[in-house]
């Protein structure tokens, strides 16, 4: 699949239209509901008001969104790098499997949000602590899916590599890692959302900027429409990040079953 075909398929009229239609429908229902039931504006503002507020001060919201996005991408990247290396270690080393993996399982059973205040004590109230929280929350999905991907290699594939006298390192980067990519991307799609959760949690605990900060400070002044602006921006951010990972996946592993849609098997058979 070429890049052009890919972009065309991703933004095919049908797909884009149906997404927009569903979202527009939801907003319309919200607007109508507010018109009919007339709740106090500090409980549920109509979407038209929320949208107007956003358009009134785009630079303000863009600045906060940039802070959140930056920390989220940074945290995600840290989780990705640490997670893949940890997974390789766990798959290749019995010792690491018994120690690191066990620790990760234990760590994962703690609601990691509970660790946020600790990170801020350890790392200060700057971006570093939010990146760390974000990475910690995103890490698990990367590790668990990469371990699964690295392990689910066809044993015959390993026999084949061994019969060709491949080294352990070659088996890792020529067989196991490419084989784990579909699994890794599945983990990344979960992790990118988790990374955003981590940043917001960090911003809730302490921060001077970001959409989480916007929500908290707006709530403090009962500026509920502003809370809604930030929430909607978070929704947009999360969706865009998810589809960004999805797009990268399509570019990196066009060979995987889930992306083969367009490829038809050749009908010509070679002559004997």
């Amino acid at each position: 699949m070429t890049g052009v075909q890919l972009v065309r398929r991703l933004f095919a009229p049908n797909r884009a239209h149906s997404i927009l239609l569903v979202l527009a429908g939801a907003f319309l229902a919200w607007e109508v509901a507010v018109l009919i039931f007339k709740p106090p504006i500090f409980l549920l503002p109509p979407p038209s008001l929320v949208l107007g507020l956003l358009l009134d001060d785009i630079p303000f919201y863009a600045n906060h969104a940039r802070h959140t996005l930056g920390a989220c991408l940074f945290g995600f990247a840290v989780a990705l790098v640490v997670g893949v290396f940890a997974a390789v270690g766990i798959v290749y080393s019995r010792v690491l499997e018994n120690t690191l993996y066990t620790l990760l399982v234990a760590l994962n059973s703690i609601p990691k949000i509970a660790l946020a205040p600790l990170f801020i004590i350890w790392m200060g109230s700057g971006t570093a602590s939010r990146v760390a929280i974000s990475a910690t929350i995103a890490l698990w999905a990367i590790v668990i899916d990469t371990v699964l991907g690295l392990r689910s290699v066809d044993p015959e594939m390993l026999d084949m590599a061994r019969s060709m006298r491949a080294t352990r390192l070659q088996v890792l980067y020529r067989i196991r890692l490419p084989n784990a990519l579909p699994s890794l991307f599945a983990g990344m799609k979960v992790a990118i959302s988790m990374a955003l959760v981590g940043v917001i949690v960090g911003e809730f605990v302490t921060s001077e900027a970001g959409l989480g900060y916007t929500i908290l400070s707006a709530q403090g002044t009962f500026n509920i429409p502003m809370v809604f602006v930030a929430i909607i921006l978070l929704g947009v951010l999360g969706t865009v990040l998810f589809y960004a990972v999805d797009l990268i996946e399509r570019l990196v592993i066009p060979w995987h079953v889930s992306h083969r849609g367009g490829a038809a098997a050749p009908t010509t058979t070679p002559s004997v």
């Binding site: 060979w255 490829a263 038809a264 098997a265 050749p266 070679p270 002559s271």
Partner: peptide, 15 residues
């Protein structure tokens, strides 16, 4: 083996 022309195709495109 009568496979000329399929060098740059992917395995999953073959019978």
């Amino acid at each position: 083996l009568g496979l000329s022309g399929f060098e740059d195709r992917s395995p999953w495109e073959l019978s």
